[in-house]
Simulated assay, not measured.
Amino acid sequence: MFKFFLLALVPAMAMAAVEFSACPNGAPTPTTLTVNDCSGSPCQLTAGAPVDALATGIVSPADSATATAHIVVRLGGLDVGFEIPSELENACAVGITGGCPLTAGTAFNYALVDDSLDVPARGVEVEIEVGLTGDGGVALGCLRFNAVIN
Rank of each mutant, 00 (worst) to 15 (best):
V119H: 09
G57H: 04
R74M: 10
T97K: 04
P30R: 03
L33G: 08
E89I: 13
D79S: 04
T103K: 13
V73T: 14
I128V: 15
T68F: 02
R122L: 15
T29S: 13
V113L: 12
L88R: 15
V119A: 11
A65H: 06
C92D: 08
I128C: 08
L78G: 00
V113D: 10
N146V: 02
G134K: 09
P61E: 14
R122M: 13
S41W: 05
S41F: 07
Q44G: 00
C43N: 01
D52N: 15
G81I: 10
G95Y: 11
V35K: 04
A69R: 15
G98E: 10
L88S: 10
D52C: 08
E83T: 14
F82G: 12
A27E: 01
G40Q: 10
V72R: 14
E129G: 10
G136V: 10
V124M: 12
V51R: 03
P50D: 12
A49N: 03
T106F: 03
D114C: 13
R144W: 00
C38T: 03
E129P: 01
D52Q: 15
Y110Q: 01
D63E: 12
A111M: 07
S60P: 07
P61Y: 11
P120T: 12
L117V: 11
F20A: 04
G131W: 00
D115I: 06
G98I: 03
A27S: 12
L132T: 05
D114A: 14
A107G: 08
A104L: 14
P85V: 09
I71C: 13
H70G: 11
L132I: 10
A107T: 05
V59Q: 06
I84A: 05
G134T: 06
D114H: 06
D115Y: 10
A65K: 09
V138S: 09
I71D: 10
V119S: 06
T34N: 05
P101C: 06
R74Y: 02
V126R: 01
D118C: 08
T106Y: 02
T46P: 04
L75Q: 09
S86D: 15
A27Q: 05
G137M: 10
F108Q: 01
E83Q: 14
G40S: 07
A139P: 12
E125N: 15
T68K: 02
E19Y: 02
D118G: 11
G77Q: 04
S116I: 03
T133H: 07
R122K: 13
E19P: 00
G77I: 11
S116D: 06
S41T: 15
P30G: 03
N109I: 04
G105K: 01
G95K: 09
V113I: 13
C142N: 14
L112N: 05
P42A: 07
A49S: 09
A121D: 11
V51L: 15
I71A: 14
G98S: 05
T56S: 08
A93F: 08
A107R: 00
F20I: 04
A104C: 11
A22M: 13
N25Q: 11
V113S: 13
D114E: 11
R122T: 14
E89C: 05
D37W: 01
I84R: 15
E125Y: 05
P28T: 04
D135V: 01
V126K: 01
C43M: 03
D79V: 04
V73W: 14
V126Q: 00
V80H: 03
T46H: 02
N36K: 07
A55Y: 03
G134V: 04
V119Q: 06
G76M: 08
T68Y: 03
P28N: 12
G26V: 01
E89Q: 14
A27K: 02
P28E: 02
